[in-house]
């Protein structure tokens, strides 16, 4: 179990039709003791707004349909514009080619989970980044 109560906001990015992955991650994180809110399909602006309202520590988005670069980068630049980039952890997961994973890291995502990531990897990585970036 995680010591401090971490609050996570999860969303399916844009119009992506897939949700099995993000719901699986939601369950992992809740089982690990985090507070999880899933807001369904949202565009970057809506996600930032919801994260502010909910005062979430972690913002996680899921993309399997190919829009990870366009909407993912947009999420980070909007977070920077709203000056919350340094206050929150940003993660993205889904069907993401290796080259693009590098680009998303450069864009500013704290972690990228590609298909096949395990519960242990996801929970421990999020906990570590949270402690490094925010505590």
């Amino acid at each position: 179990m995680v010591k401090k109560n971490i609050k996570v906001l999860l969303s399916t990015l844009g119009l992506d039709v897939h949700s099995r992955g993000v719901l699986t991650v939601a369950k992992y994180l809740r089982d690990a003791g985090m507070e999880v809110i899933y807001i369904g399909n949202s565009m970057p602006g809506q996600i930032i707004k919801a994260a502010l309202q909910e005062d979430a520590d972690i913002i996680g988005v899921s993309s399997l349909g190919g829009a990870h670069l366009t909407l993912g980068s947009d999420l980070i630049s909007q977070a920077k514009k709203e000056r919350i980039y340094d206050e929150k952890v940003f993660i993205i997961g889904g069907a993401i080619p290796d080259d693009d994973a590098g680009k998303l890291k450069e864009a500013g995502f704290d972690e990228i989970f590609i298909s096949g990531a395990t519960k242990e990897e996801i929970v421990s990585s999020i906990t570590n980044i949270f402690e490094k970036k925010l505590v």
């Binding site: 844009g14 119009l15 992506d16 039709v17 565009m43 349909g65 190919g66 829009a67 670069l69 366009t70 909407l71 947009d74």
Partner: peptide, 11 residues
């Protein structure tokens, strides 16, 4: 539509 931004032609 603004909601389609960045996703046209994917999948």
């Amino acid at each position: 539509d603004p909601i389609s931004r960045g996703q046209v032609g994917t999948s």
